[in-house]
Simulated scan of single mutants.
Amino acid sequence: MFHKQGGKMAILITEECINCGACEPECPNTAIYENGAEWNYSKGTSLTEIELEDGAHIDASLMNEPISNDFFYIVPNKCTECTGFHEEPQCAAVCPVDCCVPDPDFQETQEILLAKKAWLHNEN
Rank of each mutant, 00 (worst) to 15 (best):
C17I: 03
C91W: 00
W119M: 11
N29W: 00
V94K: 11
C17T: 04
E16W: 05
G44L: 04
T30I: 05
Y41M: 15
N77Q: 14
E51K: 15
G55I: 04
E123F: 04
D70L: 13
K78Y: 00
D54M: 03
M1Q: 12
N35H: 14
D70Y: 11
I67S: 05
E111D: 10
I13W: 02
I74S: 03
M63D: 09
M63V: 05
Y33L: 06
E81T: 08
E65W: 07
Q90V: 02
V101D: 02
I32Q: 06
C82G: 02
I58F: 04
A37C: 12
E16P: 07
K117Q: 13
C95V: 02
M9H: 13
I67W: 02
T83N: 09
C23K: 07
G84Q: 05
L12H: 10
D59G: 06
I50V: 11
L12A: 03
P104Q: 03
K4G: 12
E87P: 03
D105F: 03
D54R: 08
C27A: 03
G84Y: 02
E108D: 07
C79L: 02
P25M: 03
D54F: 01
N77V: 02
E26L: 13
L52W: 01
A93N: 10
E34A: 14
N29K: 06
I58P: 13
E108W: 02
V101M: 04
A118L: 11
G55M: 05
Y73L: 08
T14H: 05
T14W: 04
N40V: 01
M1V: 07
A60D: 12
G21T: 02
